[in-house]
């Protein structure tokens, strides 16, 4: 599995946020240098730094948000839809995503399970649709979590330019130091949050899915996440339960 991963999801998240933080963190410094070339009073200069920083951050937020959604959230959504269709008996669905990361590794496990479901249908006939109530998994989707994080940063970003004023620091030096500190702290907070809420459960699920899809049913999947990852856990568990039942039926029939 690992040799197929070109760029893991965690690295993509860090890259996206790092790019966002570095660029938006550099903006106040660059703007301050530019403004210091002109004879503008400090209050107007601070206001200009604030407005320009905020505008650049909005543009960056949209661009990075769209890239992160395309890289991470959309493939996960595609997998959830594919799994739901498979559970409804629609085997025409293509569960493969080509992201070159853990999401692709998970989709390969899912393809194995789809093949096994198709074989089970061939050998045992169509399976009965489950009548039991399916627990609902609530919570924010991966895309929503990423957008919230970016928007939170966007809202907090103007603090960069207020700090030098509050501390009565020199505009250029203050803006640069505040930008750097703020970017590092926010980067650590957001990446840790997204890593814990998205990546850790997803990697655990991908490893379990790989083992189960190769026949190791001693590995169990616990539904302990919310949102999209919780839906992936629940749907994969339902698919693996169905394949396991088919295997028991085959073994009992022999």
């Amino acid at each position: 599995m690992a040799d197929k991963i070109k760029l893991n999801v965690e690295l993509k998240l860090i890259m996206g946020f790092l790019f966002f933080f570095i660029i938006s963190g550099m903006v106040p410094g660059i703007v301050s240098v530019f403004i210091s070339l002109f004879d503008i009073d400090i209050e107007t200069a601070n206001l200009m730094v604030l407005i320009i920083t905020f505008s650049v951050s909005v543009i960056l937020c949209v661009i990075i948000g769209l890239y992160l959604i395309k890289w991470i959230a959309e493939p996960i959504k595609k997998l959830i839809t594919a799994m739901e269709k498979m559970l409804e008996g629609d085997m025409t669905v293509d569960p493969i995503v080509t992201t070159g990361d853990e999401i692709e590794a998970f989709s390969i496990s899912l393809l194995r399970m789809k093949s096994s479901l198709m074989i089970a249908t061939q050998m045992l006939g169509p399976y009965e649709v489950e009548e039991q109530e399916i627990p609902e998994v609530k919570g924010f989707s991966v895309g929503e979590k990423m957008i919230f994080s970016l928007i939170l940063f966007l809202v907090l970003n103007p603090i960069i330019t207020i700090i030098p004023v509050i501390l009565s620091l020199d505009l250029l030096l203050g803006a640069s130091i505040a930008s750097l500190l703020f970017s590092v702290i926010m980067l650590l907070i957001f990446v840790t949050y997204l890593n814990r809420s998205i990546m850790e459960p997803f990697i655990a699920l991908t490893e379990a899915a790989d083992k189960i899809s190769k026949g190791d049913f001693g590995t169990s999947i616990e539904i302990k996440s919310s949102g999209d990852i919780g839906r992936l856990e629940l749907n994969f568990k339902r698919i693996s339960d169905r394949v396991e039942r088919a295997i028991k039926e085959m073994e009992n029939g022999q």
Binding site: R112, M113, S115, S213, K214, G215, F217
Partner: peptide, 15 residues
């Protein structure tokens, strides 16, 4: 076969 078709692959071979 299991690498590509999952755990039901072994039953296909037996059959």
């Amino acid at each position: 076969i299991i690498e590509h078709a999952g755990p039901m692959g072994k039953f296909v071979i037996k059959k």
